[in-house]
Write a protein that binds this DNA or RNA. Structure first.
Length: 809
RNA sequence: GGACGGUUAGCUCAGUUGGUUAGAGCGUCUGCUUUACACGCAGAAGGUCGUAGGUUCGAGACCUACACCGUCCACCA
């Protein structure tokens, strides 16, 4: 037998015990539901939000790991069939951006690397990151079932994603549409509406002369793409011009342009007249849609790189040549000067500020372009029959206008049935099928749902799941033309067009928006691992509130659509960990705090507690080193209080030759030989109350309350009061660890007071019960130190705290 | 323009269905080798709960208005 000093150092050293303990858990298989519960037990499931496999974990990840691990450990100890399914996200665009930067540093360019080659490079890159991440999750104590770990690009997942795509397509909920989209000039891809950020910025507002009218615009350089002038229908100032063509002088010469009336024009703004540039403004695109018979179609005068693109329309015009190839910002300046010179500028309002759409990743101003993209219809009911797909122009040069009837989605069809994706989700939430922790998120959810627009799921990058579509180049018969040559094939690449038999098929180069696949994550993972039957719907979805619209919303919609059931019963949304300047931490900003560094210094338990306590659901988390240090101290407190109790127990066993058999006593009832005092009974009653209280808090997702309650009880009630009170009652035999050993005899028990061996046993019993109960209750929060102590408890056979029985109902 | 939060001790925040002297951690101050722990122990100071009304026997909690701060959304040319 090891001596007490060998077992217990006077200071808890997290670094020495954590890795070893994690290995024991993992090797013991305790993380899998097969080994942690009875077959018939109730299931508890959390699907881990898969971290992006494009970097290492930051402190934000530590938040979700802690919260989810607390829930998982709690339910596991309750005997539930507990599954925490880990994964990693290929994170399409995000990873592409990270990798682009890496390439840039190496002096390379993604557009010059062959698709397959680039794919393989990024694949290797993510696999390497994935490994690092997994070990970081282990360091944090994540008790997830590694045997089920899955990557978002796993074949099994892709298959399911394709099936959902096909179903949506067949139901008419996915379509290819040509319309004004958000184009990032830097990243050379479109972005969904959620991926653009509006930024306030000052820009001169130009009042330009268009023949008889004066109109205000910021985007001077788009004027060459104007196809009309629009005014409000009730605006008396322009009534006489509506429907007529006016002659205007531009820098490219004289031309004619039509004046139209549209409700979208605000008569209060500027002069009440606006230029209509459908190719480069999404509003104007919509105006054109409403007036397509009256005015010419979009004229794209800016190319995909954000450069003026004029000579295709004005091949011989010297002015066009002058501006051609200039970047938007430069062109604007030059055009401003030239217009001043030509007397085409009425005035310039330099004090004007407005908001511009920018790429959420790089901040580049988004350039609206008209492109064919795949869309998910959010507000339309599914159709039971496959509709003829509207025709659209071929991919590639889209400066030609699509046929009018075919822009913007589906023609109205008979035979619609069921609820739209949006309505499914709204109904499910209203019915309480999905509950948000903190009601306020339900409000936010509803607000989002109200304002949903169709979702562009096409991305012009290589890193992602390629959209399983092909385009027939020939379109040799009516059927094929009816389908616009679109071939959706989810099993294999088609040799021939199923419509017309042509062998000339071109594969869609675009990949899915990563959220399209991760929106299916809960059911896709469980189907892939054959766990769907038992573990779906899952119990809790725990993630950051910032991805409520990106992810949670879409999981609810797609989960309901694909399986008929909402993918989770509760949504717990945590806040963002912010740095000292309250800035969101993100890899791209480079302001991340390394959780591993913190763990190395203070231990994972300390970090976990610091992230939990003092934070409620949905509130941002500001973390400080002092706070972490405080909970490191608490871990040490646990260690030392335990040390005290165990030293006293062990000593008794050694002296009296007793077998340690305490560990089986789960109930708070002592053996018959032990006589508890009234106060002892009261103390144990309070302990039961504590367990109940903590359990209640955990059931209600009040982790901060549970943690704080335990912290306070353990330190200020148990350690400060109960242990102190017990000390005299334990003084029946000399304690070899006493500092007085050898110098003076052990003090005798006070005469005439309760004492003796019986009383000592009672005191030991109480201490033992409190300690073991607290260790269990604390385990979900601080798994390492509690397990480390548990392993040092005197007991007659080995056991692991991770699967001990939870001490309350 | 729309929506959602917040305002409680020096700092970071709790305060659960309205109920005694409003709590915690950190920090500050005073004193302590005590069968574990100085990463400790004992104790102390510190708050007109954003402002003004209202409901109530009773309001930090509920209602109204206002002020300030923050976040998100948005087709302000």
């Amino acid at each position: 037998m090891l001596s007490n000093e060998q077992i217990f150092a006077a200071q808890y050293n997290a670094k020495e015990v954590e890795d070893e303990i994690y290995k024991k858990w993992e090797a013991g298989g305790y993380f899998s539901p097969e080994s942690n519960a009875q077959e018939g037990a109730r299931a508890f499931t959390i699907i881990m939000p898969p971290p992006n496999a494009n970097g290492s974990l930051h402190i934000g990840h530590a938040v979700f790991v802690t919260l989810e691990d607390i829930m998982v450990r709690f339910h596991r100890m309750r005997g539930e069939r507990t599954l925490w399914l880990p994964g990693a996200d290929h994170a399409g665009f995000e990873t592409q951006v990270v990798y682009d930067k890496k390439l840039e540093k190496e002096g390379r360019n993604r557009f010059k690397i062959p698709r397959e080659e680039l794919w393989q490079e990024i694949w290797d890159f993510t696999q390497a990151n994935k490994k690092i991440m997994e070990n970081q999750l282990r360091k944090l104590g994540a008790s997830c079932d590694w045997s089920r770990e899955i990557f978002t690009l796993d074949e099994r997942i892709i298959k399911i994603v394709y099936q959902t795509f096909k179903k949506l397509y067949d139901d008419g909920l996915i379509y290819r549409g040509t319309r004004s989209v958000n184009w990032c000039v830097k990243h050379q891809t479109t972005l969904s509406d959620l991926e653009i950020k509006h930024k306030e910025q000052p820009d001169p507002l130009y009042y330009i002369k268009y023949g008889p009218v004066i109109l205000a615009t910021v985007r001077l350089e788009t004027k060459f793409g104007d196809t009309a002038v629009a005014v409000h229908p009730n605006d008396k100032r322009y009534k006489h011009l509506v429907g007529k063509e006016i002659e205007i002088t531009t820098l490219l010469g004289k031309t004619k342009i039509k004046v139209i009336a549209d409700m979208a024009v605000d008569p209060e703004f500027g002069t009440g007249a606006v230029k209509v540039t459908p190719a480069h403004d999404s509003n104007d695109f919509e105006i054109w849609q409403r007036h397509e018979k009256e005015i010419p179609g979009p004229k794209a005068v800016i190319d995909q790189y954000g450069r003026m693109d004029l000579i295709k329309y004005w091949p011989d015009n010297p002015a066009a040549k002058k501006y051609h190839g200039l970047k938007v910002a430069e062109a604007r300046k030059v055009i401003e000067e030239d217009m001043q010179k030509e007397g085409l500028m009425e005035k310039i309002d330099a004090a004007y500020t407005h908001s511009v759409a920018t790429c959420y990743k790089c901040g580049t101003i988004v350039e609206p372009r008209i492109l064919p993209q795949w869309y998910v219809a959010m507000t339309k009911a599914p159709r039971s029959v496959t509709p003829p797909t509207p025709s659209y122009p071929k991919r590639g040069n889209v400066s030609q206008v699509p046929p009018p009837s075919l822009r913007g989605g589906l023609p109205a069809q008979a035979g619609e049935e069921g609820l739209s994706l949006r309505d499914m989700a709204v109904e499910a939430v209203k019915a309480g099928e999905v509950k948000f922790v903190t009601k306020k998120f339900e409000k936010i959810f509803m607000h989002w749902m109200k304002n949903l627009r169709d979702w562009n799921i096409s991305r012009q990058i290589v890193w992602g799941i390629r959209i399983p579509a092909w385009y027939c180049e020939k379109m040799q018969n009516a059927e094929c033309r009816m389908q616009n040559g679109v071939v959706v094939s989810i099993d294999e690449a088609p040799d021939r067009c199923p419509h017309c038999g042509s062998a000339e098929l071109t594969q869609e180069p675009d990949v899915f928006d990563t959220w399209f696949s991760s929106g299916q994550w809960p059911f896709a993972t469980l189907q892939a691992t054959n766990d769907f039957k038992i573990f779906y719907p899952t119990s809790v979805m725990e993630t950051g509130w910032d991805i409520l619209p990106f992810w949670v919303m879409r999981m609810i919609m797609l989960g309901l659509y694909a399986t008929g059931k909402a993918p989770f019963k509760h949504v717990y949304l945590h806040g963002l960990v912010r740095d000292k300047d309250r800035q969101k931490m993100s890899k791209s900003k480079g302001n991340v705090i390394d959780p591993l560094g913190v763990i190395d210094m203070y231990g994972a338990d300390a970090l976990r507690m610091a992230l939990i306590i003092g934070n409620t659901a949905g509130n941002d988390i500001i973390i400080s080193e002092e706070k972490i240090r405080g909970y490191r101290n608490f871990a040490n407190k646990i260690w030392n209080a335990s040390r005290f109790v165990i030293l006293n127990l062990n000593q008794d066993f050694v002296v009296a030759g007793l077998q340690p058999a305490y560990h089986n006593e789960r109930r708070l009832k002592p053996a018959a030989t032990i006589k508890l005092s009234l106060a002892d009974k009261k103390t144990l009653k309070e302990l039961e109350g504590l367990a109940k209280k903590v359990t209640r808090h955990l059931d209600k997702f009040e982790f901060h309350h549970a943690g704080e309650t335990l912290y306070h009880y353990f330190w200020h009630t148990f350690a400060d009061m109960i242990i102190e009170e017990m000390k005299p009652r334990l003084l029946t035999t000399p304690n070899p660890s006493s500092k007085r050993r050898g110098s003076e005899p052990f003090p005798p028990l006070p005469e005439g007071r309760r004492g003796g061996v019986g009383d000592r046993r009672a005191a030991q019993h109480v201490l033992y019960m409190i300690l073991t109960t607290c260790l269990k209750l604390l385990h979900p929060f601080m798994p390492f130190v509690t397990e480390a102590v548990w392993q040092r408890l005197p007991k007659d056979k080995a056991s692991m705290l991770i699967v001990e029985q939870w001490p309350s109902k």
